[in-house]
Design a protein around this nucleic acid. Structure first.
Length: 420
DNA sequence: TCTGGGGTCCTAGGACCC
DNA sequence: TCTGGGGTCCTAGGACCC
């Protein structure tokens, strides 16, 4: 058996931990650059605000319904997530952190346990310890655990926990689940399936594996088996990333080469840090820029270039040089740039690296200097020491009009309690 | 004026090998 | 007149996830 525990309205719930005034009110959290709605409280959902909705189109409705909209605060959400995941890992040694707000647990060897009760304990533990509400779905496959979680969320009487004991008993209930709600079925496939007369999770569970594999692919065919209770997806080890991307939309259109260079240099620096955190080396770097595709009046331009490193590297200086060289190649005057990004690609891991007899690796990677930079920035805060090319003009910076303090990760932003 | 930022996997097709 | 039968690797594009 598997459990899927996920946090309800996660970003909103994180904000509510330190700001109880948000309780009971419609709250939305916006994406970077205050662009789209990416989390909604139940009250905001009830008012009809949709996931992914552009915020600027709803300003009037926000005012009308006194919706509180917050910029996203990933430093806070990441830290809260770590605390929750650490607590949940004590409930099973076999776990998989699936996203910032979801974790799978395997209950292999728990056959004598009352898992519904166990789920209630997990839920209560997180609520008491972190003050974040969760939903717990339990089932014989990961896909059925996801469905159980869907029921746990949907029906308040279940008090946040639902256990699907076996595939046969849940089968009739699958008629209540639209096929698009099934894990692994997105919008396109839901449409395609409906044309074939497959409307609900029940219909999909009754479909023929070979037919689905032929008309779609092996992934969806596996989902059919999973819905039938045949376990195809196991708990996965956390693998190092195969690509690392850092990109941002700009708060204001950026025109100057120097501003764009500053932006991509910052992205490259951050990407290099992430690369070292997971102990990998990159073979190449891709840099891209683009104008605002939503603009009907601006001239459009979008381009990218990938540069290979002479030798796999995690060295910020080497990466910065390539990124600036790449930007020089793709930058064109006269455009209003809206977004840029850097992706480290073809990452290699561990000790499998092939040495190159023509390159003085110690000199090239200069590990001591980079380690010192990481140590300083880790101890005294991000960007205590940075490369000059990363600049300080900040013309490219994203808009964050209503960001909450980093309550748990910055000493000078700790919650202050006044005694009257 | 204002529309996010990450990831993964699979498949088809082309180039190339013997 | 007749034009094989295997492979691999790479890339682009499309789907999915949160």
């Amino acid at each position: 058996m598997f459990a899927l525990i996920d946090c309800n309205n996660f970003y909103v719930s994180c904000e509510r931990i330190f700001n109880p005034r948000l309780e009971g009110k419609p709250v939305v959290v916006l994406s970077n650059n205050d662009g789209c709605v990416v989390a909604r409280s139940n009250e905001a959902k009830a008012l009809g605000f949709k996931m992914g909705a552009p915020a600027y189109q709803h300003q009037d409705l926000f005012r009308q319904h006194k919706v509180i909209s917050l910029s996203s605060n990933y430093a806070l959400y990441g830290d809260i997530s770590n605390r929750i995941m650490t607590m949940l890992q004590t409930f099973s040694p076999d776990f998989e952190i699936y996203s910032i707000d979801e974790i799978f647990l395997s209950f292999k060897g728990f056959s004598e346990w009352n898992l519904t009760d166990y789920g209630k304990v997990m839920r209560a533990t997180i609520l008491k310890g972190i003050r974040v509400p969760t939903s717990v779905g339990i089932g014989p496959t990961k896909t059925l655990a996801k469905i159980a979680n869907y029921f746990a969320k949907k029906h308040p009487l279940l008090e946040g926990v639902y256990e699907c004991k076996d595939a046969a008993s849940i089968l009739p209930l699958l008629k209540q689940v639209a096929v698009g709600e099934v894990w692994g079925v997105g919008r396109k496939w839901a449409e395609h399936l409906k044309v074939l007369g497959i409307q609900t999770a029940y219909d999909l569970a009754q479909s023929d594996y070979a037919m689905i594999k032929k008309k779609f692919n092996v992934i969806l065919a596996r989902t059919v088996l999973e819905l039938q209770g045949v376990n195809c997806l196991n708990i996965e080890e956390v693998a190092p990333r195969k690509n690392i991307m850092v990109s941002r939309s700009f708060g204001q259109p950026v025109v100057l080469y120097t501003d764009l260079r500053e932006a991509v240099s910052n992205f490259a620096t951050r990407a290099s840090e992430k690369l070292r955190e997971q102990h990998s080396l990159a073979s190449a770097v891709m840099v891209f820029v683009r104008t605002n595709p939503f603009s009907k009046t601006d001239m459009q331009y979008s381009n990218s270039v990938t540069l290979k490193f002479p030798l796999e590297t995690n060295n910020t200086m080497v990466i910065l040089k390539s990124v600036v060289k790449g930007l020089q190649q793709i930058f064109r005057e006269q455009y209003k740039y809206k977004k840029a990004g850097v992706m480290l690609v073809d990452l290699i891991h561990g000790k499998i690296k092939q040495p190159d007899i023509f390159i003085d690796e110690a000199k090239m990677n200069n590990a001591k200097l980079i380690n010192a930079l990481d140590a300083i920035n880790s101890k005294y805060g991000k960007q205590t020491v940075q490369f000059a090319v990363c600049g300080y003009a900040g013309a490219w910076k994203s808009t964050r009009n209503t960001v909450s303090p980093a309550y748990t990760t910055q000493w000078d932003e700790l919650l202050v309690v006044y005694a009257n």
